[in-house]
Design a protein around this nucleic acid. Structure first.
Lengths: 189, 189
DNA sequence: ATTATTTTTGAATAATCATTCAAAAAGTAG
DNA sequence: CTACTTTTTGAATGATTATTCAAAAATAAT
């Protein structure tokens, strides 16, 4: 077996689900072994350590998310409508039974005290998301306006990602988003 | 020693700091033993289990927080000004070096997948906070308006508690709060 | 002072944790 | 087919985990 018999991406995807749902510390390598049907040695040869595996999963999540943001906004009639669509997607996610917030936010909170590698990684990715929104908003606003709106948008997304667990009141959350982000084209779609 | 030699509240307070900072899984009972200078047996006799100790710490945190909300609003000129003061306090907390967000939010996120006892506990406490805001807002708004504003406020607080880690851009966060909560008396104080 | 009750002590327990490694297997190259 | 390299296997490792418990110590009750 000079070539690996398993698909590394598939393993990352399966472990992503575990880590996303349960977090780093609550997920054991035994969990990963069971989920992937691999032996410990294979996992360690391919990824090196639990932390490295977690980081690979986080990286994959971040890339997917950034790509989805780009795709949603690019395929919309305007930047504003694209952002509206993104927010509505997030509300739909919160309505699902197995909702588990945002992996980047959860990671940032879990590792904030250590301020180590994974905290910085998650924090940087979140800043990349804000920078991406900022670059899109620059099409329609000046530098200062775009920066302020990008931050306000992130503030609301963070709030929504946490509030998502209180499923009974998501309609009121929608109203809160409308009021908090009045510059978005909420009606015309 | 028919009476305990240590102050139970003081132990709860010390472990609260540990759990708040690091979370449940990242904090070991050995950590608690070291921090409190107690022996394992004493801790288990007094609290029963790690989970029960965590719950006691969380309860203490929630009670303190609810009391502080009441006190801040009661001692302000109006409900709106009280809420403004609370939000400004939270921004100041985020500016501190050892900022560690909100213990209830962190707990909800850490235990969301299990949907067990601690998740429900944290979730309920957060709903109590919203209910408290709601009851205050009823002094100035009708039922529907108060409920909507309370939810919007929680949305912004959740966002702020997460965004707090990005300390460089807290001025933009302030602007986002102003825009998102335009019904608050931001200027006249 | 004596007995009874409760608390402290701190080593012990058994389970689980991340990780390693030598041997076996499976591929590739010549 | 042979020699070589890489991957898989899965038991073993040693550290750490939460928790327990019998013995000792300390207080309270009589």
């Amino acid at each position: 077996m000079a070539k690996a018999q398993f698909d590394k991406e598939q393993v990352v995807d399966k472990t992503l689900k575990l880590f996303w749902k349960q977090g780093f510390y609550a997920t054991s390598m035994q969990n990963v072994v069971t989920e992937t049907s691999l032996k410990p040695g294979s996992i360690y040869l391919a990824f090196g350590s639990k932390e490295a595996l977690f980081k690979a999963a986080l990286e994959h999540y971040a890339q997917t998310n950034l790509a989805q943001i780009r795709q949603t906004i690019d395929s919309a009639q305007s930047v504003g409508e694209g952002i509206c669509n993104l927010l509505e997607n997030m509300i739909e996610q919160a309505e699902q039974t197995h909702y588990c917030s945002c992996f980047l936010i959860k990671t940032q909170l879990e590792f904030a005290s250590a301020k180590g590698d994974l905290y910085q990684f998650a924090s940087n990715k979140l800043q990349q998301v804000e920078a991406l929104f900022n670059s899109y908003l620059r099409y329609e606003y000046d530098e200062h306006q775009a920066a302020e709106k990008a931050t306000s948008l992130m503030l609301h997304i963070f709030g929504l990602r946490v509030y998502g667990y209180q499923t009974q009141q998501l309609d009121k959350v929608k109203a809160g988003l409308r009021q908090g982000l009045p510059w978005l084209p909420w009606d015309n779609q």
